[in-house]
Computed example of a mutant assay.
Amino acid sequence: MATPKHDLPDDDIEYVSKTEMKREMTALQQLGEKLIPLDKKQLATLKLPERLFDAILAAKKITANGATARQKQFIGKLMRDVDPEPINELLNKLAGLSDRHSAWLHRLERLREGMLADPKIVENFVNEHPSVEIQQLRQLVRNALKERELQKPAKAFRELFKLIKQYIPEPALPGLEASGPEEEDEE
């Protein structure tokens, strides 16, 4: 007796072991657990399904250990239907590991240093961003140079960075909505 032939060739079937499936599910659960400490605003940028969003918010309120473990498993189950890439991007950004975020910060730092070294860069910045308060910008540059010369704390230096940061927004991560200004004081 001949064995029946299947419609699909064997090449189209991907065999995954039970162990591998468990590893993937555990990884998704761990990724979901990393979302629990985030605030609502950060979670909203991810465009998560409503059930998952609500489950994460509920997990924040649970204090009993057994209930916390069950809620984390539930979040892991809901994570199976979500693309993990935007979540990883956001978590990396928040951890300061994102290449895009680092490149943006370095760009701002180079611009700030350029403004301190060359007045033409200040003029170019004013031309590119006409809404900037010119007097405030020039005052911050003068004060930052004076701080450097007198080896004083870099208050104006940091203020100049914050001002530049207001006019050069961080590029949005793919799959995420643009988020508002973050509370970071990078130099």
Rank of each mutant, 00 (worst) to 15 (best):
L137A: 08
L94Q: 04
V141H: 07
M115R: 07
A117N: 15
N124G: 10
K72S: 12
K41V: 15
K40G: 07
P86Y: 01
K47Q: 14
A59M: 08
I62Y: 06
L31A: 05
A55N: 07
L90Q: 04
K146P: 01
P49D: 06
F74P: 13
N65M: 13
K165H: 07
S131N: 11
T45K: 08
R70T: 01
P37N: 11
E85H: 11
H106W: 11
K152D: 09
K47C: 13
L140T: 01
L150T: 14
P84R: 00
F74I: 12
L140H: 03
L163T: 03
Q135P: 02
A44I: 08
N65L: 11
E123F: 10
E123W: 09
L52D: 01
S102R: 13
R80H: 01
G32K: 03
Q42I: 07
Q151F: 10
R100W: 09
G66A: 11
Q151E: 11
I62T: 06
L116M: 06
A59R: 05
E123P: 11
R138A: 15
N127I: 13
L57Q: 03
H129R: 01
K34Q: 13
E149H: 07
L108S: 02
Y167K: 00
R110A: 05
Q135Y: 10
K34Y: 03
H129C: 02
L97K: 13
F74C: 14
E113A: 01
P171F: 07
F157P: 06
V82W: 03
W104I: 00
M115S: 05
A55W: 03
N88M: 12
L150E: 15
P171C: 05
L35G: 01
I87M: 11
E33D: 08
Y167H: 04
D39W: 10
P169G: 05
V132E: 12
R142D: 12
L90G: 05
S98V: 03
L150P: 12
L38Q: 03
L140M: 09
E170G: 01
K77H: 04
L91K: 01
Q42E: 13
A95R: 07
E85T: 14
Q139V: 15
E149W: 05
D81K: 01
F53M: 05
A67T: 11
Q139A: 13
S102H: 14
V122F: 10
K60E: 09
W104K: 01
L91H: 02
F74S: 13
A69E: 12
Q135M: 13
E109F: 14
A144R: 09
D118L: 12
K61G: 02
I62N: 02
L91D: 04
M115H: 06
I168V: 10
S131T: 15
V126P: 00
T63S: 14
Q73K: 15
D54N: 13
A59H: 03
L31S: 04
A59Q: 08
E50S: 11
D118N: 11
E149P: 04
T63D: 11
G96C: 00
F161H: 10
N88G: 07
L160E: 08
E159P: 06
L160V: 10
A156V: 04
P37S: 05
I168C: 02
F157T: 15
L163H: 01
E133C: 11
Q135D: 14
N65H: 14
N143M: 15
K41C: 08
W104R: 00
L94N: 02
G32R: 02
L78M: 06
L35Q: 04
M115Y: 04
L108V: 06
M79Y: 02
Q151Y: 08
E89W: 10
T63F: 07
D83E: 14
P169K: 13
P171R: 03
